[in-house]
Design a protein around this nucleic acid. Structure first.
Length: 499
RNA sequence: GGCGCUAUCGUCUAGGGGACUAGGACGGGUGGUUCUCAGCCAUCAAACCGGGGUUCGAAUCCCCGUAGCGCUACCA
């Protein structure tokens, strides 16, 4: 019947490579391989403000490191290139024109203020806060005239105002939603870029995607997508919405970097093996009844059955990952292979030669290398609260300083020594603390030692993820920050350090 | 607030009307092995969210609650 299976993972390059992306990539890949189909990587960089090429590079390299390889993608090409949405703008434009011409979409000239006001009102009235359709009523003459005079506008698709829509899903019973609860979605932004919904549908069709396997957060958007398929006269793909990975906190909220390391890069730096990570992600979905939990990617693919996935959002439990990782180290590597892995990981010349200049001035003998640089090769570093508080620091204030630094680091475009120094100088200035008094506890938090290699350079080499994890741990060590306190501090931070 | 999804040990899960005294794994406890530790072995504690139905029989099907999550953007 249908042509062969084609699936895709479509990350948005707006941050660190997320384990959730890898999780979805794994399930898509397994489904494709199981059915002899193709697995495609598409970059959804339609958010001009947030997308970066650094992020795209990092995502590609992380997925490749995990061994989740794709058959078509921006780097390897394929019959439906380009695979980067920012390079497909004319295609989207053309489809938007068609929607407009056929009366299935309209230009909307409403201002942000008006929309905000409208949503606030609707929310107060406790009704669905969607777009009220003001510009839907515009005559085509007026719409054309205003567009011709270059008045800023978006294009919205028309969504029915009554009746119901059925969302089919491989893993659930049909989901029924009232059209009334669905917005006239913006499909083309005022900057000429498409929104996710339009670009996604157009590309999935053009790239002949047969099964859309993606995160649960998209379920509520399916009606809009189905409508677009209908407007274009296309057959929709099969939908399958995967549960979202969760934090190990009280509420089990959607996995977020505020609470957990979510960057694949962190796990790499912390010394996890790619095959263990992939195995672990495979375990989150189902396990064989009495069976072995350690399995290769090939075995996972052999036994893969999309329909058997369990739907409760799994907690990403690093403890269990550690256990699995330990088994891979013990059971799958001999001494030679282990040394190879270590070299690949951090004991190769690239990393060592960057550390060397920092350690060298402080070495009396070669053997000093060990204690001077140990923290570069660690995940967590052994620190006690009293080490952090030496010099009579107030624990609460110190926790705040760590947190402020953490937030400042997140805003940094480049995580390099110069930028880091800038952050510390700014904090010292704004908080009226001498730079050396400010930095002292950071040495301890990051290196586990009172004296060590220079802070800014060391932090750069450590990288964002390890720095973040160690600072977060330091905050906990000195007593933590309550949710309330964090909120207040965040407000103060935005006020003093700029929004 | 509205709408949607989900619900088995602390965690990942098995289970799809009787085989459930609810199984496995992580983590935890105890004991053994070992020069220490890790490992390994043995062993213990630990769950069907609540309430109603349906049925001879329900973790499994239905309904109602509750809770968690998600969506509710010119972010994806």
């Amino acid at each position: 019947m249908t042509s062969s299976v084609r699936v895709r993972v479509a990350p948005s390059p707006t941050g660190d490579p997320h384990v959730g992306t890898a999780y979805q990539a794994l399930f898509n890949l397994a489904f494709a391989r199981k059915h002899g189909g193709r697995f495609i990587l598409r970059i959804e960089d339609t958010d001009r403000a947030r997308s970066t090429s650094d992020s795209e590079r990092a995502i590609l390299s992380s997925l490749r490191w995990l061994g989740l390889s794709w058959d078509e993608g921006p780097d390897v090409g394929g019959p439906h290139a380009p695979y980067r949405q920012s390079e497909r703008l004319p295609i989207y434009r053309e489809h938007v024109e068609r929607l407009l011409a056929e009366g299935n979409a309209y230009r909307c000239f409403c201002t942000k203020d008006r929309l905000d006001q409208m949503r606030a009102d609707n929310r107060d009235k406790k009704v669905f806060p969607g777009y009220d359709g003001k510009c839907r009523a515009l005559s085509s003459d007026e719409s054309d005239r205003r567009a011709a005079s270059e008045e800023a506008h978006v294009v919205r698709m028309k969504v029915p105002t009554e009746g119901t829509c059925v969302i089919p899903d491989v893993l659930r019973d049909d989901i029924v939603k009232d059209w009334e609860s669905i917005d006239d979605q913006v499909v083309l932004k005022s900057d000429g870029f498409p929104t996710y919904h339009l670009a996604n549908v157009v590309d999935d069709h053009l790239m002949e995607i047969t099964h859309v396997i993606r995160g649960e957060e998209w379920i509520n958007s399916v009606p809009k997508h189905l409508k677009l398929y209908e407007y274009f006269g296309w057959d929709p793909p099969v939908f399958c919405h995967l549960p979202l990975l969760r934090n190990n906190d009280a509420n089990k909220s959607k996995l977020s970097k505020r609470k957990n390391p979510t960057s694949i890069e962190y796990y790499r730096r912390a010394g996890f093996l790619p095959e263990a990570i992939v195995n672990f992600m495979g375990m989150m979905g189902w396990t064989r009844a009495q069976g072995e939990e350690k399995f290769t990617l090939d075995a996972f693919i052999q036994n893969f059955e999309l329909e058997k996935l369990s739907l409760g959002g799994p907690v990403f439990d690093v403890e269990k990952l550690r256990w699995l990782n330990a088994r891979y180290i013990r059971e799958d590597l001999d001494a030679v292979a282990l040394v190879d892995r270590l070299r690949e990981w951090a004991l190769g010349p690239d990393y060592l030669e960057r550390i060397a200049p920092l350690a060298q001035p402080r070495m009396e003998t070669l053997s000093d290398w060990g204690y001077l640089t140990a923290f570069f090769f660690a995940d967590a570093v052994p620190v006690e609260a009293e080490d952090l508080l030496q010099g009579g620091q107030d624990p609460k204030q110190l926790a705040e300083l760590f947190q402020i630094a953490l937030w400042s680091f997140e805003r940094l475009e480049r995580f390099d020594a110069a930028s880091l120094e800038g952050v510390f100088r700014e904090i010292a200035d704004k908080r009226d603390i001498k730079l050396r008094d400010l930095t002292r506890p950071f040495y301890v938090a990051l290196t586990g030692a009172k004296a060590s290699t220079p802070l800014f350079d060391s932090a750069e080499l450590l990288g964002r993820d390890l720095v973040r994890t160690r600072l977060r741990r330091a905050i906990e060590l000195v007593g933590g920050l309550s949710a309330k306190k964090t909120k207040a501090l965040d407000k103060e931070f935005r006020a003093t350090f700029g929004a």
